[in-house]
Nucleic acid binder design. Structure first.
Lengths: 340, 340
DNA sequence: AATATTTATGAAAACGCTTACATTATTTTT
DNA sequence: AAAAATAATGTAAGCGTTTTCATAAATATT
């Protein structure tokens, strides 16, 4: 079996020392081309792969990145994980995935676990890793004392913490402003409690009103706290608001599933979309194409962000000075649920 | 820093040998309760975590399972990865994720990589890991010589290979039969080239016709080879068939996104669903709730399968004799896209 | 109380690599 | 052609655990 082979076996067969084999393996320049070829041939012939543990022990790095993610069954997070994993692998890094759920203690525990595994860095996927209370993010700061911490779509200033994010504030503000400018004043903002970015988007929504010098109605800011799978829950949540007498001409959301729930609500009530109710999703996921009409949504450049994040990560690990914050601009993808 | 501490430091502080510390760490019974407590206290006090590499080297196992998955951004596969990861972690196993894409060579390469990392087992998520040609699956057999190989929703008989799957054949046959029994003869079967299970479902579809003694029209078996994101592609694919004169009263699909594309097609052509066209999806994903009307779909018990798979895996790793094949029955979840 | 048995602990080898340092081979300089 | 400089290779010491085997302590048996 090729897997039982050790560097000793290879060195013996190639008639060199284990140090030379190691040098070939690690691409050291100080080895004669002829020797390198000889060793390589043996390695290829026997399909030898160095034992990752031993290598890790020696190098104190296993070329492994920890990926922390609340819930990789969430469409958006799943895509992020996918893009990050792919990019890491292209750079010859492995990823250990760790789904933490939304509980804070769990997140901390998972992080500790990854650290004990000596990952070279840890990527936190999603803004829900930012804890919105005093000292809540110390666990990030602490981890960053040991290894670089990469935040996807979250914003946190600390040494050795690198953020790659989309300007959700601005994207939401822009979308809201477009609606306001088209003469619609009663815009419901619907967000999900799970994600901190829902707050930032809320601020963008509010800022749009301020900028346009229009009055804000607090009742039009609503938080849905169910799961990202519970579209029916969203629909009845909105229905309840409606039945309670709340009225709106547009709904701006912090996630696509909320938008879909809104479209379903409109259908149930024979409200014409976009004529009498315009709806804006967020993330530009496949859900936008499933509903009727297809939904306008903010594309927040997930793939670009992930590519950049890995680029920054690799740079940091190889000792380059890297910017600690990179911000992408979201882009409103207009479909048939709006007429702006 | 707690992370730099070694077993030596702990042993010194506790006034015992490293062997004793190791025994405490590994829960060996041969250690006096008083000693254990003493050591534990030091460990807790300093937050010591053993170096995973060294441990791996010693044990030749890092309690890590490799997860192989073509594309974890696919809703279905993402959920599978999520469930598996969660269950593994509950059993104190880590998971290294590896997205292979659909290229066979890549899959083999990724598997080799995982093996070189000395994972304790490897889980292949999805039927696309079964290569439908002579000797195509030797790579699985080979891996199984070293470690147990777990297949999710794929069927392959070999020593040390464990399959957990859903009877997609039967589920599709049942759905098709229900439609046939309700008097509809022209059922389009639409599947996706990416997944081998599309073939098994096709067989189920065909078997329904045979069982009901009805004639099969080969033109009604169509394969869409686009991406799982390309709902619009599906819609125009069906439109083309329609424009070419193909007619059908129902569409049975191998995946939800195909069903959604079908519903969109119906909408575009003012074909009433389910009155004039019934549509059945597969996987019972969130997409079924996004479209209008909500889509009937086969729930193939993904979570149950994943739980069982991990159970089987842990059993195997701990030396229990485990069944090599466990088959779940799919369940048709009826919604408004059918009237059966 | 002396001996046999069991239980708890320690010393040291092993795990398979990397790498600093020592040595040898090769090339360049004189 | 000898000396100096450089390049290639080898030797051996880590890296931080686990674990076997030997030994010491505690308990049971006579």
């Amino acid at each position: 079996m090729s897997n039982q082979m050790t560097i000793y076996d290879i060195s013996k067969k190639a008639g060199v020392s284990i140090a030379t084999v190691s040098r070939v393996l690690n691409g050291s320049s100080n080895v004669k081309p002829k020797t390198r070829k000889k060793v390589m041939d043996i390695i290829d012939q026997y399909g030898y792969k160095p034992n990752a543990f031993a290598r890790g022990l020696g190098l104190n790095s296993m070329k492994t990145i920890g990926i922390l993610c609340a819930d990789s069954s969430d469409l958006y997070l799943a895509k992020a994980v996918y893009f990050i994993e792919r990019n890491l692998r292209e750079n010859e890094y492995n990823s250990v995935l760790c789904c933490t759920g939304y509980d804070v203690e769990n997140k901390k525990e998972s992080l500790k676990l990854l650290l004990s595994q000596h990952v070279d860095s840890v990527v936190m996927v999603g803004s829900n890793f930012i804890i919105n209370e005093d000292g809540g993010n110390d666990y990030i700061k602490e981890a960053a004392e040991t290894i670089p911490v990469m935040l996807l779509n979250a914003d946190y200033d600390a040494p050795n913490v690198y953020c790659t994010l989309c300007d959700d504030f601005k994207a939401t503000q822009d979308a809201t402003e477009s609606l306001l400018k088209s003469g619609i004043d009663d815009i419901l903002y619907l967000y999900n409690s799970k994600s901190y970015s829902g707050q930032k988007k809320l601020a963008g929504y509010q800022n749009a009103y301020m900028t346009m010098d229009k009055e804000i109605n607090k009742d039009l800011q609503q938080c849905f706290s169910g799961s990202h799978e519970d579209i029916e829950g969203v629909t009845s949540f909105i229905q309840k608001l409606w039945d309670d007498g709340l009225r709106f001409k547009a709904i701006v959301t912090s996630e696509d599933f909320l938008g879909v729930g809104a479209i379903k609500f409109a259908q149930n009530n024979n409200i014409s979309v976009p004529k009498d109710l315009q709806i804006v999703g967020y993330n530009d996921s496949i859900l936008t194409l499933c509903c009727e009409p297809a939904m306008t949504s903010v594309n927040n450049r997930l793939e670009d962000m992930c590519i950049q994040l890995v680029k920054t990560l690799i740079g940091t690990l190889t000792g380059s000075e890297m910017p600690q914050k990179i911000i992408f601009s979201g882009e409103l993808v207009k479909r048939d649920s709006t007429s702006i």
